[in-house]
C-alpha cells in the first residue's frame, strides 16, 4: 500500500515538474479564460444590470471551454513519446497512475481557474453571495471536469484534432453546468444552495470512483 502512495506521488511530481518547465502549456488556457470573459462586457456594452445577470453564466461557460482546451495536455506527450506504454506495462495498476495524472491536471489548471474566476467575478462586480456560490460550485466541479475529460482524451488521443474531443466532452459537462448554474441563481436570489451543492458533491464522488478505472480501460483500448 505504501508503495502505491509512493508511485502516486512520483507520477504527480513528474507531471508537475514537466508543466512548470513548459509554462506556456498551462498559462495559455488560463489566459484564454480571462480574455474570453473580458470580451463579453465589450460586446454587451456597459449596462451594469444586464452584465450582472450574465456574468456568472459567462464565467461558467468560458471555464468549460478553457477546460476542453487544456485537457489534451494530460496524455498527449505521453502518447507521443511512448511513456503511456511504459505506464501500462508498469508493475502498478494503471488506474493509480491515471489518478495521479488527473490530479496533476487539476492542480495545474482547475485550482488556478477557481481563483481567476473569483477574481474576475470581483472585477465584474458580482454580489458576495453569488461569488460564494461560484467559488463552491467551481471547487466541486473542476475535479469532475478533469476526471471526465481524462476519459474522453484517453479515447481520442492521437486521432485528428481537438474538435472531436470538444464534441464528445461538452455534452458530458451539461449536468455539472446545470446544477452549478442553479446554485448560482439561487444564491443570487438569496436562497439556500445546499441541494445543488449536495448534488455536485455526489457527482464528484461518482467521478472520483469510476472515472480513473474507465480512463485506464480507454487507454488500453486506444493502444491496442
Amino acid at each position: 500500500m505504501n508503495e502505491y502512495i509512493k508511485i502516486f506521488f512520483i507520477i504527480l511530481q513528474r507531471d508537475l515538474t514537466l508543466v512548470f518547465r513548459n509554462k506556456a502549456e498551462f498559462i495559455n488556457p488560463l489566459m484564454f479564460f480571462v480574455i474570453v470573459i473580458i470580451l463579453f462586457p465589450l460586446a454587451f456594452g456597459s449596462d451594469a444590470t444586464l452584465l450582472k445577470q450574465l456574468t456568472s453564466g459567462i464565467i461558467w461557460v468560458t471555464a468549460l471551454l478553457a477546460t476542453v482546451l487544456s485537457l489534451e495536455t494530460i496524455f498527449r506527450t505521453d502518447f507521443e513519446d511512448g511513456s503511456i506504454e511504459q505506464l501500462i506495462l508498469a508493475r502498478y495498476p494503471l488506474t493509480l497512475m491515471v489518478s495521479a495524472k488527473v490530479t496533476a491536471h487539476w492542480i495545474i489548471f482547475g485550482l488556478p481557474l477557481i481563483f481567476i474566476a473569483v477574481l474576475t467575478g470581483f472585477i465584474l462586480s458580482l454580489s458576495s453571495q453569488t461569488m460564494f456560490a461560484l467559488f463552491f460550485t467551481l471547487l466541486l466541479s473542476t475535479p469532475v471536469l478533469s476526471l471526465i475529460g481524462a476519459i474522453t482524451v484517453a479515447l481520442t488521443i492521437g486521432l485528428r484534432g481537438g474538435m472531436l474531443l470538444s464534441l464528445l466532452i461538452l455534452p458530458l459537462y451539461m449536468p455539472v453546468l446545470i446544477f452549478s448554474m442553479l446554485a448560482v441563481q439561487n444564491a443570487t436570489a438569496g436562497q439556500s444552495i445546499s441541494a445543488e451543492i449536495y448534488f455536485l458533491a455526489g457527482i464528484l464522488v461518482l467521478a472520483l470512483t469510476l472515472a480513473p478505472i474507465t480512463t485506464a480501460a480507454a487507454l488500453r483500448i486506444r493502444l491496442s
Partner: peptide, 28 residues
Amino acid sequence: TYFGHTNGVKTGLTALENMKVMHALSGF
C-alpha cells in the same frame, strides 16, 4: 521489460529524473 521504438522518456526531465521514474515504475 519492454523497450519500444519510442523511447518512453520525457524530454522535459533530466536523465536522472527520468531514471528515477523508470526505477519507480519497475517496482524499485
